[in-house]
Structures are given as structure tokens and as C-alpha cells.
Design a protein around this nucleic acid. Sequence first.
DNA 1: GCAGACTCTATAGCTTCTGGAGATATAGGG
DNA 2: CCCTATATCTCCAGAAGCTATAGAGTCTGC
Lengths: 151, 151
Amino acid sequence: MPPRSAAATVMTIGRLSAESGCKVPTIRYYEQIGLMPEPDRSEGNQRQYSRRHLERLRFIRHSRDLGFTLDDIRELLTLAAHPEAPCEEADAIARRHLRLVRDRIDRLRKLEQELEHMAACCHGPTVRDCRVIEILSDHGKCLSDGHPPLD
Amino acid sequence: MPPRSAAATVMTIGRLSAESGCKVPTIRYYEQIGLMPEPDRSEGNQRQYSRRHLERLRFIRHSRDLGFTLDDIRELLTLAAHPEAPCEEADAIARRHLRLVRDRIDRLRKLEQELEHMAACCHGPTVRDCRVIEILSDHGKCLSDGHPPLD
DNA sequence: GCAGACTCTATAGCTTCTGGAGATATAGGG
DNA sequence: CCCTATATCTCCAGAAGCTATAGAGTCTGC
């Protein structure tokens, strides 16, 4: 009997979606931007995917979950296809991304403090006595001087 | 002599930009989406801003820096215009935002660990021995089961 | 009165998808 | 063979929050 899991040699796009966790329009989008190769088509013009497609898509999905950009992923995919190449580049991408993530954490922490401070400053029942609005209006009432952009 | 700082009663858009830290196209964009009111125009059809515009724009800018969405800011601006209204709502917006920020910090921390783990796993000189690609290919090699979406 | 800086409008692009419209394909049951 | 329900097809628009460009007009200082 034919296998019921991802072991099926041919998948529709819906199946690929279920197996990979990517939504159907997202898969078509990835194909459109050249991140996924164009699959074969059935007689009725429907996409037919193989396990190789699934693997690639899972790689993409996983990398996206880890916050890599599509451009990063494009590069990582190229690297993955050349096992003999030096891995410095892949490593560099990962490390750069790690720096980015740490940076974002730092900035978000500052923000967290600022917001805690703000929320703690609400003193009266009306907007007039509420510091939230006031602090937003006047940067000088902030804990820190500058808020770096979040992204 | 006419004042040289923001005390000028009338500003061009470039001046408003410099005083607020918002770029010129951003200011026009805010006007377009109704976040900033349409200012008077000079005879030559150029926008003329008052200090009230500057205050509003600074409020917006500061809130953006703190990560509030434009929709949040719209609401906060409305609230700010009604000092007699109860401040619960402003407070609620700030607290909701605080929760959001904390959530993002948590998720980014997990990511950080994952990436550290990954980077530490690079063992060989070629992609073949580099775990970065391998881990990306195979979710099972991850520290955690699921990576929640970052946003 | 002219160079150069600034501003105007309108429109398109960025990133990473997501959703809808309207048409076709396929699978399962009678 | 037909019917229906679901899945798929293409194409296009929209989301958030800007940013950039083109081509024209305006203002300022010397």
C-alpha cells in the first residue's frame, strides 16, 4: 500500500504545506522569487513536489523561524549545496545574525524599563494625571536619552 | 532678530524634520494617512507648520521609538486631547505594549541560545563538517522543539 | 537675477508574506 | 456518468511603515 506520510514520492502543494508548516500561498511566493525551484506539473497543471522539495522547504522554514532573512537563506542554501566549500561563510552569517539578535534584545530591554517606568507613573484617574501621555509628550521625562530604532 | 530654534512660529517641512527627527517624506506620509493634520500653505504652496505641529510630531516620533504602532499612537493622541477622560485606556495601551515587548524579549533569548549553540557547533573547515547548515536542515538537532514566530 | 537648496506631487518600491476573485482539477459517493 | 466538495490554478491587491525617484516649481543669499 502507498505510504501515508511524507514518504510519498509525490506531493500536492497542500500536502507540502502540511508537511512543511508553510502556507500554500507562501510556497507559491517562494517559487515566484526563485527560492524554491519550479516543480513538475500534473496533466491538470498542478504542482507536483518531491521529497527534495520538502527538505529544501523545511530548511527555509526553519531558518525563517530562527529569524534569518530570505537573503541570508538564499546564501545558506547555496552553501549547503557545496559541502566541499569552506564553512566560514555559513558561520559568519550565523554569527552576524547572533549579534543582531543580541542587539535587539538589548534595545528591547531598555524599552521594557522605559515602559515599566511609564506604567508605574500613572497616578490619577484622568488623563490629566496620567504620566503615560505626559512622558510620551516629553522626551525629557524619559529614563534614557535616545531610543535607538528597533529594527 | 527672529529666533533661530524651534521657537520660530512658522516652519518649513525641512525645519520640522530637523526639529522632530522625522524625515521629510515620513512627515508627508503621516499627513497622508491622517496622523498629522494638513498644515496651512504658503503662497507658493509649501507647507507651513506651527509649534503645535512640532509637539504632535514629537509625540508621534517618541512613541514610535518606543515601539508603539501607528494605530496605538492614533489612540494615544486622541486620549491626549481629552485630559478629563479616564486614563485607563492609555494605561492599558502601555501595559499591553509592555507585555508585547517582554514576549519578544523571551523569544529572542531562546533564539540567542539556539544560535550560540549553532555557532559553537562548527567543527570542520568545510560545509560538510559545519553544523550550522546541518542544524538548519534538521529541526531535530535544535535545542527547542518549536520556534515561535518572531512577530 | 541666478545658482543651489529646498519643496511640491505622484508613483513605485521595499520585505515577507496573506488574502481574495474567479476559473479549473481532482476525489469520492451515488 | 454526474454531482459535489475540496483543492488548486493565476493574477492582483493589501498589509506596515516608510523610502526613493522623477520632473517640476519655489525660495534664499549674494
